[in-house]
């Protein structure tokens, strides 16, 4: 039986919308609204969904870069959301994040050695400067950057190289979990493949666990063991990746999968084209949030919210159609 490294229960993150001269809170952006999932030790869970559905917010709330509105985050048995500052700092060693934008996420005034070395300093992982630089050198080599780059600044690197620096920084403290928030989305296809291969090699070598956030379903399918699909602040389906692609249960997953353009002109896909746009998370639709766009919606869908439950073999989904 697989061992859970991370467990997220009923997590909510609401951002207040303020208006008027007194900056009164008039509404909430329900960015993450009652999300539950787990990540097993050594596996990769892919988190997919369209722009604004709450993927990054989920990742950031888990790490407490944002404070949760409600819910539970259990990491190795510890309740992350109730940790004090000191314990939080310690646990952050085990949970690291890689960001989407390799241009914006690195401090332009720091050398590569300092960018990668900073977390080592924060967590006092080196006895002296020499040992720290040795560590940095090792890690840089591990991600395919020679030590000759240590004194250079981020702007001197290409997008793919910058992303390697971001990966090196995350690895520097020897974490157990890495939350990778769209780590290859900003890269050219040929460079994407290099970084994906690197992440997979590192996972094997260091026994890492990944929460891999992305919107590119082909990439997610390649790298993940299991996949969770988000829509408007909720996870609507979660399953083993093969299961999810072969037998998607939720109508949103079905249309999402059918929308992927495949690099094969002989394949003429049967598309389920969704009408309209994703509604606003400030005032999400009643009942099932997908109902205004769902090609299979029926009366119950606009009234009652479907429950997210296990339909066997850890294949979770939330849809009234499944409850017969």
């Amino acid at each position: 039986m697989a061992e859970k490294l991370l467990e997220v229960n009923n997590l909510k993150k609401y951002f207040p919308v303020k208006a008027g001269i007194f900056k009164k809170t008039v509404a909430y952006v329900k960015a993450v609204d009652d999300v539950s999932f787990f990540v097993n030790k050594g596996e990769t869970l892919g988190l997919v969904g369209e722009s604004g559905c709450g993927k990054s917010t989920t990742g950031r709330t888990i790490l407490r870069l944002l404070e949760a509105t409600a819910g539970e985050v259990i990491f190795e048995g510890k309740d992350v959301l109730s940790l004090n500052k000191e314990d939080l700092r310690n646990i952050r060693r085990d949970m690291q994040i890689i960001f989407q934008d390799p241009y914006a996420s690195l401090n332009p005034r720091m050398t590569v050695a300092d960018i990668v070395g900073e977390p080592i300093d924060i967590h006092n992982l080196a006895k002296n400067k020499k040992e720290r630089n040795e560590k940095v050198k090792d890690i840089l080599e591990r991600v395919g950057l020679g030590s000759e780059y240590m004194r250079r600044y981020p702007h001197e690197f290409s997008g793919g190289q910058r992303q390697r620096i971001g990966v090196a920084r995350a690895l520097a403290v020897d974490p157990k979990l890495i939350i990778a928030d769209e780590p290859v989305s900003a890269l050219d296809v040929s460079i994407q493949a290099q970084v994906i291969n690197l992440l997979q090699d590192l996972q094997k070598d260091f026994g890492l666990t990944y929460l891999f956030i992305a919107h590119d379903l082909s990439v997610v399918k390649h790298i993940s063991d299991r996949i969770a699909v988000m829509y408007l602040g909720k996870i609507v389906e979660m399953a083993d990746k093969t299961e999810l692609f072969d037998d998607p249960m939720h109508p949103y997953t079905q249309s999402l999968l059918s929308a992927i353009p495949e690099a094969d002109p002989t394949k003429k896909k049967e598309r389920i084209i969704l009408e309209g746009d994703v509604p606003s998370p400030v005032d999400p639709p009643s009942g099932c949030r997908f109902h205004p766009r769902c090609p299979k919606a029926f009366d119950k869908c606009s009234v009652e919210e479907p429950v997210f439950k296990d339909y066997g073999d850890n294949h979770f989904a939330a849809c009234h159609l499944l409850e017969e």
Binding site: V189, Q192, A193, Q194, V219, E262
Partner: peptide, 24 residues
């Protein structure tokens, strides 16, 4: 040829992508 092999395919699982080395 390299571009086509460096992207993951939906209908075919591979363990490793064949990346084009280097940069433009």
């Amino acid at each position: 040829w390299g571009l086509m092999n460096s992207i993951p395919k939906l209908d075919r699982d591979v363990n490793r992508l064949q990346a084009i080395p280097g940069i433009v």
